[in-house]
Design a protein around this nucleic acid. Structure first.
Lengths: 234, 234
DNA sequence: GATGATTTGTACGTATGTATA
DNA sequence: ATATACATACGTACAAATCAT
């Protein structure tokens, strides 16, 4: 219906071609923006990523869109089916479970290495975050707890002092993100989470690698169980 | 200067465009071929990946080359510097060491999960491979040992029954590959490797997750030490 | 199941940014 | 420091494949 009109109408170029104010290429900017949209949940898993629509939405041609999609497909956020377009990657139950289990192993490895490698200031910082979480449990603030909890885990990734492990741990977290429903909702779960952290922190502070590994692995398994219980109830 | 002439001259198309005999796109084929060339050592780390040269070498236009390079950069084999071209990814000492340590953690995680999850046939198969390696140590065949050793490790990746862990373990192995110099060269190292495997196999067969984890981690640390010793001597 | 519409895949030209003399 | 050469970034045209009808 509309197609007859289009070919004459479209001719005027939008020309956003201005010499790139920032130093970034369009492809880079797009990859970043698309990843954000997926991780934040704006584009849900399974959403079709139409090249032309994305191009016009972001005011660029199809070329950078295609290049960004290729990169995101290699990192796992996007799935490309040849000749059939790209969609936001979808995971079935099994794949999601596998990812959780692997995440537990990765974070446990981080904790173990952190027990060995953290500097004294890093250890002090971890304790400080842990104390902050204790207070948030006491006054019962799930939202703040979730935010500070992120720093807790990040501090341990960094403390492992291993750039590659850091990279794949973050990447795995990013890939799971679109599938995370709610975080901690109940005070009970908060309390339990804090107690598990307590074992992790104690092991790291006394430099006990294997104990830190086991405590963190256990913590994450228990996080998955909490998710599952929540998912089942909803 | 030449541009006046060019626009008339270029018109004849080379037309390798034959309707794609296989079902694969050129980008896919190229990504595969490039990854192969890098992993096999044909393109060494640091090699410049000139778009035009690659395009003509593989008989395609620059577009699929660019798209393949983007994917390989997301998977870590290639490094893209904006406006400055792509090179085969290079790792410094520290990065390589970090990757080895992480590989040890990943394989250890696989071994731990394999101890839990391997089926009876899988356990039998692992034992069979292990017996084969014993024989190869006895008669002293480093080349065959290296080949069968790969199956040994692969059997454990598979036995973990975790698709995501499998994926990142393989990907890490691929990324380290271009930096592997020689494999086991000495009979002494062969013997030592076999003894370490022995602990891993025993732990897996009796379903002892933590012991399997520790034994595999130790094995890989000792593999890295062997590499380092070799590198230092050469 | 064939045909037209739509969307992706590939080629190529030109502009823009980077390196070099 | 400026100009020149060169490789990449991006837009656009067309071909090929998929999907609707």
């Amino acid at each position: 219906m509309k197609s007859a009109v289009r070919s004459k109408v479209k001719s005027r170029r939008i020309s956003i071609s201005a010499p790139r104010p920032d130093g970034r290429t369009r492809t880079e900017g797009l990859r970043h923006d698309l990843a954000d949209a997926i991780v934040s949940g704006e584009f849900e898993p399974g959403t079709a990523l139409d090249e032309v629509r994305l191009a016009s939405r972001f005011g660029v041609s199809r070329t950078p869109v295609r290049e960004a999609l290729r990169q995101l497909s290699a990192s796992g956020l996007v799935e490309i089916r040849p000749h059939r377009g790209a969609i936001v990657a979808k995971l079935d139950e099994r794949q999601l479970h596998d990812m959780f289990v692997t995440m537990a192993e990765l974070e446990a490895a981080c904790a173990g290495l952190a027990a060995q490698n953290m500097t004294t200031p890093e250890r002090r910082q971890l304790e400080a975050i842990h104390d902050e979480l204790r207070e948030l449990v006491r006054i019962g603030e799930p939202e703040s707890y979730n935010v500070v909890n992120e720093s807790f885990h990040s501090a341990i990734y960094v403390g492992a002092h291993n750039s590659y492990l850091f990279e794949i741990t973050q990447q795995t977290r990013t890939r799971i993100q679109p599938f995370r429903r709610a975080q901690f909702r109940t005070i009970g779960r908060l309390q339990r989470s804090f107690e598990e952290h307590d074992h992790v922190v104690a092991a790291i502070l006394r430099g006990d690698r294997e104990a830190a590994y086991l405590a963190m692995r256990q913590h994450l398994i228990s996080v998955e169980e909490a998710y599952d219980a929540y998912a089942e109830a909803h």
